[in-house]
C-alpha cells in the first residue's frame, strides 16, 4: 500500500515551491527552509559558556534575549575558520527555541520545486551526520545540501548534554 502511494505523492508535490536560504560552509553550499529562519545577523560579541560541547560557541544578546550560538563548522567536524566580514549568524527556531548558527556566508533565497529534492547519497563526505540531511538538490550549475536542523541534535546527544 505504501508503495502505491509514492508516485501519487510525488506528482502532487510536483508543483509545490519551497523557498530556501542558502549558505556556505567550507566549500559546500547548504540550504534551510526559509520559514524556519527568524533573522540573519553579523557576528556580535559572543560570551563563552563553560562546560558545553565544543561546537557551542557561547551565548549572545539578541535584543534582550539570550540565545545560544552554535558553530556549524565545528558541529560538522570541519576545519575551524576565523570569522570575517562574510561570517553570519542564522537565527532559527529549532526545538521550539531560538538558536543561532554560525555560517561562512549567506548567499541568497532560492525557490525550488519540491520534486527537485533527491534523497541524500548513502555516504556524504566531511563527517556530517546523516541524520540532519533532508536531501540534496541538484540544479544545473550547483549542488545544494538541504538540512533539517530539528534532527541536528539527536536525542542521546540532548540527554547527554542535559546531564553534564
Amino acid at each position: 500500500m505504501s508503495n502505491a502511494l509514492v508516485p501519487v505523492k510525488a506528482d502532487e508535490l510536483h508543483g509545490e515551491l519551497i523557498q530556501l536560504v542558502s549558505f556556505n560552509l567550507d566549500k559546500e553550499e547548504y540550504g534551510v527552509e526559509v520559514l524556519k529562519v527568524r533573522e540573519i545577523i553579523r557576528m556580535p560579541i559572543v560570551t563563552r559558556v563553560p562546560n558545553t560541547p565544543h561546537y557551542v560557541e557561547g551565548v549572545i544578546n539578541l535584543r534582550g534575549k539570550v540565545i545560544p550560538i552554535i558553530s556549524m563548522r565545528k558541529k560538522f567536524g570541519l576545519m575551524d575558520a576565523e570569522s570575517d566580514k562574510q561570517t553570519r549568524i542564522i537565527v532559527m527556531e529549532v526545538d521550539g527555541e531560538l538558536k543561532g548558527f554560525i555560517v561562512d556566508a549567506v548567499s541568497e533565497v532560492i525557490r525550488i520545486s519540491s520534486s527537485e529534492i533527491q534523497p541524500s547519497p548513502a555516504v556524504v563526505a566531511s563527517g556530517i551526520d546523516q541524520e540532519c540531511i533532508a536531501g540534496v538538490i541538484n540544479q544545473a550549475e550547483r549542488l545544494l545540501v538541504l538540512l533539517d536542523l530539528e534532527k541536528m541534535f539527536s536525542r542521546d546527544e540532548k540527554n547527554a548534554f542535559g546531564s553534564l
Binding site: 559558556v49 563553560p50 557551542v56 545560544p68 542535559g162 553534564l164
Partner: peptide
C-alpha cells in the same frame, strides 16, 4: 536574570 533556555539548562555551576 535571563534564562539560558532549555538547550543550555543544567550547566553545572551556572
Amino acid at each position: 536574570i535571563k534564562s539560558l533556555g532549555k538547550y543550555l539548562a543544567n550547566i553545572p555551576g551556572i
